[in-house]
Every structure is written in C-alpha cells, then in structure tokens.
Amino acid sequence: MKTSYALNKVLTEVARRHAMKDRLSEEDIAGYTVSAEERAALTAGDIAKLYELGANPYLIRRVFRSRFRV
C-alpha cells in the first residue's frame, strides 16, 4: 500500500497544532524532506493528490477540513 512518511510527518505536525489550512505554506513545509510532487500537492491543498501520493486520509481531513464539502 502506498504511504508517504514525509507527507504524514508534515501533516501530523500541522494537525497537532490544531491548525486547519486551505493549503500549506512554504514555511509549514520548511525542514521536511518532501518530494517536489508532494510539495506541490501540500501547497495547493490538493486533497485528492495527497491521498494518491500516500498521505493518511484522517490527517488530510484534519488539516484540510475546509476543502471537504461534507
């Protein structure tokens, strides 16, 4: 199964600050080793792409709650 430790590490840290975002900033991602594709998805708040790249959906939901219609 596809899982990205880099994405989940970033999203866990943001989620634990109880910070809900539309998209992550470069500052949010600074210091994490994410690929260019992962960086693009995080900074775009592209929830479908993040899922495809192996981000945990519970973390996607917590961080990008405003991106979900329900």
């Binding site: 899922y51 996607i60 939901r61």
Partner: peptide, 9 residues
C-alpha cells in the same frame, strides 16, 4: 464510512 479520501461522505 469514507473519511478524508476522494469518496468522503
């Protein structure tokens, strides 16, 4: 239930 996936809801 689907939570945080493209099928959420």
């Amino acid at each position: 239930h689907w939570v945080g996936t493209p099928e959420t809801g």
